[in-house]
Simulated scan of single mutants.
Amino acid sequence: MRNRALLTFMLGHFTVDMYGGLLPVLYPLMALEFSLTKEAVGLVALAFTATSSIVQPIFGYLADRFGSRVLAPASVAWAALMVAVAGLAPTLGFLMLAASLAGLGSGAYHPLGAASASAVTGDLQKNTAMSIYTVGGSVGYALGPLLGALAFGAIGPAGSVFMLPIGLVSALLIARSLRGLPARVAGRGGSVADASHGRERIAWRGLLPVVGVTMLRSWVTLSLITFIPLWYADLGYSASFYGPLTTLVIGAGALGTLLGGLLADRFGQRRVLMLSLVGALPALLLFVGVPGPIALLTGALYGMLADSSLSITLVMAQRALPGRTGMASGFILGLGFVTGGIGVPLVGRLADQVGMPMALSSLSVLLVLAVALALLIPRDASQRAAVPQAAGARGDD
């Protein structure tokens, strides 16, 4: 935590994911205003996640090639502006456009921030460092629903405008901090360790199952987070309950992410990944099967277990694509987001037909598939030659 550069990129991650967490709380209000089905709400969520996903590999390439000095703060400010506009949308089409453009800013920042966070840390502490970076996004995503419940509960959808200053201030702080970083970090992504690897051959045998696990886990978690507010609104609960509940699920995920990174550096990535996925399965079934106040406990348990492997799969992807840290980050995060985005309207359509509890319970099948894919990850894929930490890689500057 003494690494101020890492904390800078963590701040950006916190901000853009806060906006991503705020949007699901906006959806029930817009659903009432435009008389939307749950499938239509899923399509609005897809507008955000699909755009965010598609652009991530592109901005990952730009991070590797040109760095993040200008793009990182600009992407945060753009996401803030578009989320503010979304709450003022006069039509469904305008709402989808605003959500899509907000996704552009969020998608741009993720590979820029991940590549830069990797650049300021040594290879032997990658899991811990990336968990710290990732937890910034998780905390932001957790606070988003709570802030949304406060803003929207007070003045309705237009409360999104009051979220704009947070993003603008964050963008200014990031821009100021980046000016003080060495050119090797602010100018280009990639750590000292990455540079020593060069552009080695891609380890597809280890990468593909990692990508598959990421996609399935994202589908489950994003569907759950998107539909918790709608489900509990249907059950008669107010935003004062389902807003904090959504925040708790995501916040527990932030704690799980941090613990997962620490445990992976100590006991191994593959072992922690398997325990995370296997434990998340019964937690999901308990959360869906027993709604009500007990969900504050079971939801937190699911979030902590499911998200404890977030930074692990990201580091696995970065090591499978040596010398391409930005591309790896954009690739793994982008595919995860797009799968979750496509899956949300499918779950919404199923919920319209068979009910929300049955639709959310069906997500357990995806976790079983994720466990099967995790078994295919080669044991050496999570232990690619660690490069001794080079001088300056700590990023204490």
Rank of each mutant, 00 (worst) to 15 (best):
S116P: 02
A391V: 05
V55P: 08
G148W: 03
R205I: 09
F14K: 02
G93E: 14
M274H: 09
R394E: 01
G303S: 13
F287Y: 09
M10C: 14
A195L: 12
T226L: 11
L22G: 00
F66S: 10
L235W: 11
P291M: 03
G140V: 07
G87D: 04
R217T: 02
L273V: 05
G395Q: 00
T325I: 06
M304A: 13
A50G: 03
V70I: 15
L29Q: 09
I132C: 00
I332R: 00
L346W: 11
L81A: 12
L310S: 15
Y141C: 08
K38F: 02
P90M: 11
T51W: 04
I202N: 02
M10H: 12
A98Y: 06
G107K: 01
G289I: 05
P322E: 08
A158D: 00
G107P: 05
L281P: 06
R217I: 01
L305M: 15
A175H: 07
G113N: 10
G299E: 00
P345Q: 05
P28G: 03
A86K: 02
I174L: 08
F337M: 07
R201K: 15
V371F: 02
S116N: 03
F34L: 11
K38I: 04
R184Y: 11
A306E: 10
M130A: 03
P165G: 09
P165L: 06
A102W: 04
G144E: 06
R394N: 10
L26M: 10
F227A: 08
L296D: 10
L367H: 04
Q353F: 08
V278E: 07
R217Y: 07
A306S: 13
R379Y: 09
P157W: 08
S191C: 08
G21M: 08
A63P: 07
A102P: 00
P291V: 06
A381W: 11
R379K: 13
Q125H: 09
A98H: 04
S362H: 08
E39L: 11
A154V: 14
L26R: 01
K38A: 10
A84C: 10
G256V: 12
I377D: 02
V70H: 12
T37L: 10
T134I: 14
V55A: 12
L22Q: 05
M163W: 10
G343C: 11
G323E: 04
A119G: 13
V169S: 06
G60Y: 00
F66Q: 08
L92M: 12
R270S: 08
L172D: 09
L104G: 09
S191V: 05
A381R: 12
T8Q: 09
V70T: 15
L258D: 05
T298E: 09
A77R: 00
V192Y: 01
R188A: 00
F34P: 01
